[in-house]
Design a protein around this nucleic acid. Structure first.
Lengths: 339, 339
DNA sequence: CTGAAAGCGCTAACAT
DNA sequence: ATGTTAGCGCTTTCAG
């Protein structure tokens, strides 16, 4: 149960070189010997060993996927979904993904992921905002890097980015089309550029519609952009003003906190206030009311990342192609026309 | 940027064998040469290549993880979570996980996962109910198998199982302690043994409490155990009888369908009817009301599976140790004492 | 069109 | 205690 290339060669009465050529579909093999060899391969259930092949070809057939610890472990469905998309596409392209996480604070002295040191990957996909020190370290190894949902200030790499600006714009425009004029934007900290981009889209929409930008309607840059952050943000907003009729949150987690607060305060959604989120996580549809949101095609983002990676691996001079993935308005029950 | 063992040997003025021994912490190396070699290793940033090592040692350092297509792709957070637990533990134990899916219908002629054929894994974890044909195929390769949440009728393997019977028992007992006597059990199809085991637990609880088992209170073995299945099941139940005061569902997805139906019918939860689910998925807490459920420690299940695998790999005669993972009652808002 | 042979980087006898 | 050496299974010139 472990036929090697030698076994095949012997059985087919040819040399191992010939077998190798047949396996690699080399055309300068007569169809007779090809058939002969193929037959032997089949009979022996021969499959080349990854390790042996990797040793000589310097290709592991694996792709590394790096995620920041806190993006991964904290039941963060967002990047997990992206990872699963990459996984899926990797199967199509005959690669395996080696996943690893890195600390959010990566010091220059820190050990790089084992798969890099052992030369066990042919390229690396980095998702989310990763430490610059890590990137610097990785660059030494001269393997293709592809970025996802974050673009480092240094260098030029292929990347797949989410169109957060257009998303923020469309979300806000949806609200405006529903007749809303006093629209709040609730963000967590700006640690991740996406949050800021979505805010830019929000402002653009206001401007386009000739609506004033009212700083009072925004809660920015405090706390984490999660459920409790959303809860506190809307609370704070309401201490300042009660005139807004709609809320755009930087993501769905924040929106759920908002919904929770509004429910506690007996403010009806969407009758009294419309709420729109961003991301489209699975739980949205279960909320009460189901959340209107901007869908980020997370699996698709992962798929695209793998495609870019495969291109990078195959062409020796990869171009830093960037893919901007559009987001889509999903209207559910948490937004409605104003009376 | 690719120091090999030879480079180290030369730099340290020793043979490659010595370097290898040092790398492997062999004790019969004088501490002087050890230091010398270690220094060279550090200076050259030497790390053994996985491929080379794998070729000679016949150990890839990878572990395969097999999931059924439909368990994975259909946004199935359950097995995904288990996988992530395995991933996590793999990092601790210095393994990488190669993930793959197989069709639910696996014919004897089908190709086995590529990582098996290429001998690119040292063992395989199988999660959920996998086709027997696949298991038969895998057995040929004589590598350790570990089962998760499913145990094949044939053979004896290490496995980590979820204590569904105790879970069903405890869930039902919780309801009984709340004063409920007429308790429904809603299942999807029995395709997966867990559903049946939870049902057994339910019956045991009734018996223990001296309550009659009323077939009329159960909807079994129809449709998929998902949200819409739950919706239809409770609808069907209510066409038969309206006397029940509590519902135990085979999982949380079914419970959400139940909740949806009850809301549409203006039946209050938990005032009119208590509902308890099973699994504890993330969305539970966002439901209205938040769902009482039996928590399955999914990540932990994955962790245990990897531990068993590492044991199996390391001992040449692995014993078919089985781990039964307990589940835990999480009381939230969907159950209450009956008046 | 096919074969011989030289490694890829490492481990593990076996010598010394 | 350390070095020599023979592969592991495969790819890839280079000859023929």
């Amino acid at each position: 149960m472990a036929a090697t290339i030698k076994d095949v060669a012997k059985k087919a009465g040819v040399s191992v070189a010939t077998v190798s050529l047949v396996v690699h579909d080399n055309k300068r093999i007569s169809s007779q010997t090809r058939t002969k060899v193929l037959k032997a391969i089949k009979e022996l259930k021969y499959h080349p060993s990854r390790s042996a092949r990797g040793l000589v070809s310097r290709r592991s057939g694996n792709i590394g996927f790096i995620l920041r610890e806190d993006h991964f472990s904290r039941s963060e469905p967002f990047y997990t979904k992206i990872f699963l998309g990459t996984e899926f596409q990797a199967r199509e392209d005959e690669y395996y993904i080696l996943l690893t996480t890195v600390p959010s604070c990566f010091e220059p002295g820190n050990k790089l992921p084992r798969f890099v040191l052992e030369r066990n990957v042919d390229g690396i996909i980095l998702a989310g905002k990763v430490p610059q020190n890590l990137i610097n370290g990785l660059e030494q190894y001269k393997m293709p890097l592809v970025f996802v949902d974050y673009y480092p200030p240094s260098g030029k790499y292929p990347a797949v980015m989410i169109d957060n600006i257009a998303g923020g714009l469309n979300a806000t425009e949806h609200l405006i089309q529903c007749g809303h004029q006093r629209i709040a934007y609730l963000a967590g900290d700006f640690e991740h550029p996406s949050i800021l981009e979505r805010f830019q889209g929000y402002k653009m929409a206001l401007e386009k519609a000739g609506l004033p930008f009212t700083p009072e309607y925004t809660v920015l840059g405090e706390e984490l952009p999660d459920r409790s952050g959303g809860y506190n943000a809307v609370k704070k907003l309401f201490q300042r003003t009660r005139t807004i009729t709609a809320i755009f949150t930087c993501n769905d987690a924040v929106a759920t906190g908002v919904l929770q607060y509004l429910k506690e305060e007996h403010i009806r959604v969407p009758e009294d206030i419309s709420v729109i989120g961003f991301d489209d996580v699975e739980a949205d549809i279960m909320l009460d009311p189901p959340l209107t949101t901007m869908r980020v095609p997370k699996e698709d983002v992962g798929v695209q990342a793998l495609r870019l990676m495969v291109e990078s691996i195959q062409s020796d001079r990869p171009k830093p192609k960037k893919i901007l993935v559009p987001v889509e308005l999903i209207v559910r029950g948490s937004t409605c026309h104003i009376n």
